[in-house]
Design a protein around this nucleic acid. Structure first.
Length: 298
RNA sequence: GGUACCUUGGAUGAGUGGCUUAGUCAGUGGUCUGCAAAACCAUGUACGGCGGUUCGAAUCCGCCAGGUACCU
């Protein structure tokens, strides 16, 4: 049977180094599961694998998008599955690694088949939200889809708006698309989690941010100044430098904020993965233990 | 040495006599099925010290400590 090794863990824990060791051992390419490393040009701020590293190990889903491109977890799911089908004949064990929790879950468990929202509907709902506010949208959702309204996060504009978009566009209830069933995959999934003590992780985060600044993060961000409204640039490391470039923050303050927001991000990742009982946890230094574990599961 | 003003939880910052007392940020714990490094939720009894007035003080008075400004 074919195997997909899924290597996860919070940002800066050491996934990249570990992934190279695994890729080397199994002689397989690396599938990135990082929603921001997909954007060309965001090398420094996303700690994207370097050209040299990419020459050594073939990477997929790195730098293939432009900041304005539409992308989603569902699209990622479809593209990864397609890629795996093509690759498994040559590499019966493949490696998927990255920090984007929902992307990883999309590959492992699947996402319900919900239509992609068209531009007009999206614009219409955003306009309605700006004009009438969240409560009005929530009231509308209660009428159109009481089932979803009952369980939805009604205070979260993104959730309410998306549900409404689907209702408007399809004429059906958003909840009618949601089966929330886990899909079965035709391959074996081996989940490896990396973790460190929080203090140790925070130190790594801090020094990595300092390194990014040394490598020229500010210059990198400058190139994207005209695109800052895109969600792809609503990213830790970029949004803070934008504030500096606009004169709102000093550079030192922006750097502190990047560190802080990266810590917050890492905690959210830990929270997300903690409840996943399929994960076997290792310290990143325990490469031997990791490889042994994978061999046993294959 | 004198005069004036200030001192609130980790940070910031409302509150001038009495219901639970802000709010914001951070911290911590969570949620998560279509932009997810997103978005959202929960969680903090603090009023510089001592004494006084009062039924009751963060809020009024006195002294002390620390700070800021101006004067000599």
């Amino acid at each position: 049977m074919n195997n997909l090794v899924v290597l996860i863990g919070p940002t800066a824990v050491g996934k990249t180094t570990t992934s190279f060791a695994i890729a080397e051992h199994f002689e397989c390419p690396i599938i990135s599961a990082d929603s921001r490393q997909m954007y060309r040009g965001m090398e420094i701020g996303t700690a994207m694998p370097t050209k040299e590293e990419q020459a050594l190990h073939k990477h997929y889903f790195v730098g293939q998008l432009t900041p304005g491109d539409y992308y989603s977890a569902a699209r990622y799911e479809a593209e990864v599955l397609e890629l795996l089908e093509k690759e498994f004949p040559h590499h019966p064990t493949m490696l998927l690694t990255g920090g984007s929790m929902m992307y990883i879950d999309a590959v492992c468990y699947g996402i319900d088949d919900i239509p992609t929202v068209d531009e007009e509907t999206r614009a219409m709902v955003i306009e309605k939200f700006n004009r009438e506010g969240l409560e009005s949208l929530a009231a509308e959702l209660r009428l159109l889809d009481p089932e979803y309204y009952a369980e939805a996060d009604i205070k979260n504009p993104k959730r309410v708006m998306h549900a409404l978009e689907i209702c408007y566009m399809t004429g059906k209830k958003y909840s009618s698309f949601r089966t929330r069933k886990k899909k079965q995959r035709p391959f074996n999934i081996i989940k490896i989690g990396l973790r460190r003590d929080r203090e140790e992780l925070y130190e790594r985060i801090n020094s990595r941010v300092d390194m990014m600044i040394e490598q020229g993060l500010v210059e990198e961000v400058k190139q994207f100044a005209h695109l800052k409204e895109h969600n792809s640039l609503n990213t830790v490391g970029y949004k803070e430098i934008f504030k500096y470039l606009e004169g709102e923050w000093t550079l030192d303050f922006a750097i502190e904020k990047i560190k802080q927001n990266t810590r917050i991000y890492s905690r959210k990742q830990v929270t997300w993965y903690q409840k996943d009982e399929e994960i076997t946890w290792f310290h990143p230094d325990d490469i031997e233990g990791i490889l042994k574990h994978i061999e046993e599961k294959i």
